[in-house]
Amino acid sequence: MKLLDIAEVVEASGVPASTLRYYEEQGLVLSAARHGLRRQYLPGVVLQLGLINMGKAAGFSLAEIGAMFGGDGRPELPRDDLHRRADALQAQVRQLEALADALRHVADCPAPSHLECPKFQRLMRVSTEAARRRTKRNGGPKAPASSRT
C-alpha cells in the first residue's frame, strides 16, 4: 500500500501541515511511518480529515470528534448525537432566516423612522423574547467577558 507524504495529505485534504501535526498530537490521526523527518500517512487519513472538518463545521469539539473514532481509526458515529446536532443546526437555520428577513425589512422599510414601524417594533419584541429564553435556558445572565475574573 502506498503511503502518502505529509505534503500529499495537505494537498488532498486542504488541512495545513501544522494542523495535521496538531491532530496527530491530539490522537485524531496517526502517521504510519516516517521518510526521513517527513511523516507518512495511510490514504484513509484524507477521509478521516474530511470527517474531522465536517464535525468541526457542525460544532463538535475536537474531543467529541476524537471520541467518534474507534481504536483502529474507523468512525463509530453516535447517531443520537448526530440527530440532536442536526436538529440544533436546523433550528439555527430557521433563526438565521428570520434574522435575514428582519434585516431586509429594516433595510427596505418605508417608515420615516424604524422606531415608528409596527413591524419593526414587533421584530424587536420577538428578538428580545428569544434572548430571554436563551438566557433562561443557559442558566441566567453572564457577566461580560471583560468583567469576569
Rank of each mutant, 00 (worst) to 15 (best):
F120N: 06
Q90G: 07
S113Q: 15
V93I: 13
A111C: 15
Q121R: 14
H83E: 13
R94H: 08
H105R: 04
P112F: 09
R84L: 10
H83G: 06
D87F: 10
D81Q: 15
F120Y: 13
Q92N: 10
L123W: 01
Q121T: 09
R84F: 15
A107R: 15
L89V: 11
L123E: 04
R84C: 09
F120S: 04
L82T: 09
P112W: 05
C117Y: 00
H105L: 00
F120A: 11
L115I: 10
Q95V: 10
A102M: 07
L103P: 06
D87V: 11
V106H: 03
A88D: 06
A88V: 03
L123F: 06
D108L: 04
P112Q: 09
Q92L: 15
A86Y: 07
D80G: 08
A86S: 12
L99K: 03
R84M: 14
L82G: 09
A102E: 07
D81R: 08
A107I: 01
A107S: 10
P110K: 13
Q92T: 12
D101N: 13
A88W: 08
Q90E: 03
V93M: 10
R85D: 04
A88K: 12
A111R: 09
R85M: 05
A91T: 11
R122G: 06
H105E: 02
R104P: 06
H114T: 10
V93T: 04
A88T: 05
L99E: 11
A88I: 03
Q95S: 14
A100Y: 03
E97W: 02
P110C: 02
V93A: 15
D108W: 03
L96F: 11
R85N: 05
R94T: 10
A100R: 12
P110F: 04
Q90C: 09
E97T: 06
A100F: 01
E116L: 12
A100N: 11
V106K: 05
Q92K: 13
P112I: 00
Q95M: 12
Q95D: 12
P112V: 03
A91I: 04
E116R: 13
D87P: 02
A88E: 08
Q121D: 07
D87G: 08
